[in-house]
């Protein structure tokens, strides 16, 4: 097959696939929340309510695209596009199967971290441009939270990098042929998981948009498709973090040969997506100061310790 054509197919596939999955998550999340709360969930639109997403999409597209008169118009419009952009860019380095990757960068992991740092802008800009005290508070909270958890997130995967000796994600997957990194890097996995939740500001760490305190926080003033972008961006974030966990700690596409590699990848990824939903169904939101002290006083030392120990062991073995 023509390499260029294959590449274009991969790019289109990743783009469409990730967006479709993110959209589908709207349904999955609602349904699974219901399942874990002994309810039935969406069941009115189509069989088992599977067309609910469609209905929601139609609805959100037909909503008035309202820009309040008091906002900073340019930033207000730009803000929601940033999150979509950065996360979709991150998907470029995810290897879904052997050679199914858009850009197999040798600094792949750094690229992901860089992109997720950019994601902080979406919250800051949205919160600030809305010109509303709740939005601003949400934006400030979000910025502080994302900057903090970025640190541990980066540190937590250093163990994996040390063990692999490469930032390239394909290398990392290949390095797990014998054992998934979740076993040697269990602490790293836990920290990455927690930081991932915080990074996507999902429950229980959704303080930037805490409904009960900030009336939806940084996106209070958003409606219609601009709100839809935040919404889909959040689900893209979940998908990305789940994909990264799969790649970094659970052997990516690796699995027994009776299923093709892509299917293994997707199964693993979906397990984590569901775990994210389960977290939302279960855990209450901590206070903001608890969140920060939890990060800086517990996760940071733990992550540093993990790097130290991993480094020591690697040195010892060498």
């Amino acid at each position: 097959m023509n390499d260029t054509l294959f590449h274009i197919l991969i790019i289109v596939g990743v783009l469409l696939g990730s967006v479709t999955i993110a959209a589908g998550l709207i349904y999955v999340e609602r349904k699974m929340l219901a399942v874990w709360q002994q309810r039935k969930g969406p069941n009115r639109v189509g069989p088992f309510g599977i067309f609910q997403v469609l209905a929601d999409m139609v609805k959100i597209f037909f909503k008035e695209d309202w820009i309040p008169p008091f906002v900073d118009k340019k930033l207000f419009i730009v803000a929601p596009t940033i999150i979509m952009l950065t996360i979709l860019m991150s998907f470029a380095i995810i290897p879904f199967a052997p050679s199914w990757v858009v850009a197999d960068l040798n600094i792949g992991l750094l690229f992901v971290l860089a992109m997720s740092s950019l994601g902080a802008y979406t919250i800051i800009l949205a919160g600030w441009s809305s010109n509303n005290k709740y939005s601003l508070l949400g934006g400030v909270r979000g910025a502080a939270q994302m900057i903090s958890y970025e640190v541990f997130m980066g540190l937590s995967i250093m163990g994996v990098v040390i063990q692999t000796g490469s930032f390239r994600l394909t290398d990392i997957v290949e390095a797990q042929q014998n054992i998934w990194f979740v076993i040697p890097q269990f602490i790293g996995f836990i920290i990455f998981l927690i930081a991932g939740v915080a990074e996507t500001h999902r429950l229980p760490f959704d303080l930037p948009e805490a409904e009960s305190e900030l009336i939806a926080g940084f996106h209070s003033e958003y409606s219609g498709m601009k709100f839809g972008m935040f919404f889909v961006g959040e689900y893209l974030g979940i998908t990305l973090v789940s994909a990264l966990i799969t790649v970094l700690f659970f052997g990516g596409w690796l699995g027994p040969a009776f299923l093709p590699p892509i299917i293994w990848f997707l199964i693993k990824m979906f397990c984590f997506i569901l775990f994210f939903v389960l977290l939302r169904a279960t855990l209450p939101r901590p206070r903001y100061d608890q969140l920060m002290s939890y990060g800086w006083k517990l996760l940071l030392p733990l992550a540093l310790l993990n790097v130290l120990v991993t480094g020591a062991i690697v040195l010892l073995n060498a």
């Binding site: 002994q38 389960l278 279960t282």
Partner: peptide
């Protein structure tokens, strides 16, 4: 306790639904 809660909530998957379909 958080983990226990996660497990208990997970198990609710298999209990009877309480929804009344008004």
């Amino acid at each position: 306790s958080s983990l226990r809660s996660l497990w208990m909530v997970f198990l609710k998957m298999f209990s009877k639904r309480v929804t009344i379909e008004y």
